[in-house]
Amino acid sequence: MNEFLLAAAGFVLVTVALGLIRILRGPGDADRILAAQLLGTGGVAAMLLLGVATGLPGVTDLALLLALLAAFAAVAFVAGSGRGAAGGATPGVAEGGTGGEEPE
């Protein structure tokens, strides 16, 4: 079974690797970030597979972190691309704290 899971991880990796062609070819930077996103989701899957196959502790946490930060990568891209405003027509958000606080 472990062999199968490893093979599956390898397969997912290869598909993700194919996706990396988008990084090479673009054409736009947007397409490149898509490949990075694919790597995020695929990476989560590959890590789960590897983790269960090799029985390493903590790999679930790693996948969790990757899932959490996959969105952060998208934020980095959006912040970098300097274009926002996909949603609300009214600028600014009505609610929400505005204190300079730390996130805990």
Partner: peptide
């Protein structure tokens, strides 16, 4: 959760 929001976010950006 992050996939759903990130997809929309990227759509807005690209």
């Amino acid at each position: 959760l992050s996939g759903a929001t990130a997809g929309q976010l990227l759509a807005g950006a690209v």
